[in-house]
Computed example of a mutant assay.
Amino acid sequence: MTQLANAGLVLRRRKTGSIVMPQKSQTAILEIKDIREEVTARGGIYRHEILTRSTRPATDSDAARLGVDAAQPLLVLDCLHLSDEAPFCLEERVINLSVAPEAAEESFAAMAPGVWLLRHIPWNEAEHRIAAVGAQAPVAALLDLEAGTPCLVMERRTWRQGEPVTAVRLTYPGAANTLSARFTPSQG
């Protein structure tokens, strides 16, 4: 029941019991997938590399993006995911070291940051935002694209018991990727 309440599916009240909450028909549940699995499912050979890594206090921009206080200690990573040695996805991630202090010592050589977080830091809430954007020059260069090339961008934030864990921006070349979801109609 606690998990159902945390997911917003039931409302628990003392002395009166639990009730099933009405669900919004616009709500879509998206999975947090392992990019390695995405690549291998397409028949590719997966590899990732950490491009940049720094530990620093949160800037005002970081604080707004992740929902932490300014000066909160963060691990900031850029990771390139490859399929058959071609760029597949650029991962730009900030990790709240107050919630995940062990991430500061992790090399992420054997396991990409997203998978490491899924296996080591349990979360109970996530938010996705998905957009089509033209690749800015620095991102386009990393993905081996022309500047302005359409890309699929997924921004995600996760929380553990109300504390922000991570914020990530995943940029995929648009021509090679689609987003699909399977769902059922809401029960009005």
Rank of each mutant, 00 (worst) to 15 (best):
E38V: 03
T40H: 03
A41M: 06
G44T: 03
G44P: 07
Y46G: 03
R47W: 04
E49G: 03
E49L: 05
E49I: 04
I50P: 06
I50K: 04
I50D: 06
T52L: 11
R53H: 11
R53L: 14
T55P: 10
P57M: 14
P57A: 12
A58I: 13
A58L: 08
A58N: 09
T59R: 06
D60C: 02
D60H: 07
D62K: 07
D62E: 13
D62T: 15
D62C: 06
D62V: 03
D62H: 07
A63I: 10
A63G: 08
A63V: 13
A64S: 08
R65D: 14
R65S: 09
L66E: 07
L66S: 13
L66R: 10
G67Y: 08
G67E: 10
V68H: 07
V68K: 08
D69M: 10
D69Q: 15
A70C: 08
A71P: 10
A71L: 13
A71Q: 14
Q72S: 13
Q72F: 04
Q72H: 08
Q72P: 06
P73M: 11
L74M: 15
L74R: 09
L74G: 11
L74K: 15
L75S: 10
L75M: 14
V76Y: 06
V76E: 12
D78I: 06
L80S: 00
H81R: 06
H81I: 03
L82Q: 02
D84N: 15
D84W: 01
E85Y: 04
A86K: 02
P87G: 00
C89P: 01
L90I: 00
L90C: 01
